[in-house]
């Protein structure tokens, strides 16, 4: 069996195959539900209503999507340049730490929100600067360095929460001092849980999209990602482009942590992120690295997690089903995308 490139894939192929991937994912979901001893159709229905069935559910899904949009954008930007940033999780915590450091009284209104957001982005950017310089100067594989930084960062956060940042009024729980009210992101509509971080995430996606399509930097990022040799031959500063990409990517990932602390939690704890940095990779891949697509896939992924939580409570099926669904959705989607561009032939 061999793969043969398709020059101009038809619309049926380009739209039908991803749709088929979605259907197959649902099939797997139903099979898993059956294995868990529940009614497959009911499980699917409960996931759907749990994610989108009420105003409360929808808002919860959008809340959950907010950090995923940021980390998804961070990954999408970096992967577009073939810079394999697996460290969005670490950069997220860097942003979260800054939110606490500047948000617990160091700065007051009205400076605290814009300044801490900017400093958070800077912190995330600097965290990725090391790996990218090691890559451009010494050829060190950034997959390894960024991945390992995640663990270092998580341990550093644990240290902070047990030591310097520990909330004296936290009854011994490893969590930080809460943010002052001025450092909290307000809600978009009073009384509803959705905070302005979501709007900021949408804005970030639009900004990234504009950068990618309208600016010289975006042109350079795409060129370096597609063919660094040709980019260098054409006179592009390939290493400088990679550094700029890393700063942008790290900054976006940091906003995820910053908005979770400032918008949702109000304090930092070591379970702030249930792997938003890693899930961001799935979000970005499902969106084919398109910044506006990231908004949709982040909401889709968030919906599956939120819906699975609700379904789990109702049907007694473990929430692990959400992780398995993510994995199958990603595998089927990657396969579907591959098959829009090539066909399998025998011989």
């Amino acid at each position: 069996m061999r793969l043969e490139a398709i020059a101009n894939p038809s619309a049926v192929r380009r739209l039908g195959l991803p749709a088929l991937a979605l259907v197959l994912t649902m099939g797997v979901a139903m099979a898993l539900a059956l294995v868990a001893g529940a009614n497959p159709l009911a499980v699917l229905g409960q996931i759907a209503t749990g994610a989108l069935g009420s105003k409360l559910a929808i808002l919860e899904t959008l809340n959950r999507a907010t950090p995923l949009i940021f980390t998804g954008l961070a990954v999408a930007v970096a992967f577009r340049a073939k810079l394999w940033n697996i460290g969005a999780e670490a950069q997220l915590y860097a942003g979260a730490i800054v939110a606490v450091v500047l948000g617990t009284g160091a700065l007051g209104s009205p400076l605290v929100l814009p300044v801490s957001a900017a400093v958070a982005m800077l912190a995330g950017a600097l965290l990725l600067l090391g790996p990218v310089l090691l890559k451009t100067r010494l050829g060190v594989d950034e997959v390894v360095t960024t991945l390992l930084l995640n663990f270092i960062m998580l341990l550093f956060v644990s240290y902070l929460l047990e030591g310097p940042m520990k909330d004296p009024g936290g009854m011994g729980w490893p969590k930080s001092t809460p943010l002052i009210p001025e450092a909290r992101l307000p809600r978009i509509v009073e009384g509803l849980r959705l905070h302005w971080g979501f709007a900021l995430a949408i804005l970030a996606a639009v900004v990234v999209w504009v950068i990618q399509t309208r600016t010289t930097l975006g042109f350079e990022i795409r060129a370096v990602g597609q063919n660094p040799e040709a980019a260098r031959f054409a006179g592009m500063p390939v290493n400088a482009v990679l550094v700029k990409t890393a700063l942008l990517s790290g900054g976006l990932a940091a906003l995820a942590g910053w908005s979770e602390v400032a918008g949702l939690k109000g304090h930092l704890s070591s379970d702030l992120s249930p792997g938003f940095g890693y899930t961001g990779i799935i979000v970005a891949m499902l969106a084919l690295l398109h910044p506006l697509g990231v908004i949709l896939t982040a909401i889709f992924v968030a919906g599956i997690f939120v819906g699975s939580d609700a379904m789990s409570r109702a049907a007694g099926v473990p929430t692990y089903i959400a992780d398995m669904l993510m994995a199958t959705a990603l595998l089927f989607m990657v396969l579907a995308i591959l098959l829009t561009r090539v066909r399998v032939v025998r011989g």
């Binding site: 060129a223 040799e229 040709a230 031959f233």
Partner: peptide, 9 residues
């Protein structure tokens, strides 16, 4: 193919 152009551009 590899130096003079970017295939998917």
């Amino acid at each position: 193919h590899h130096q003079g152009s970017i295939a998917d551009f």
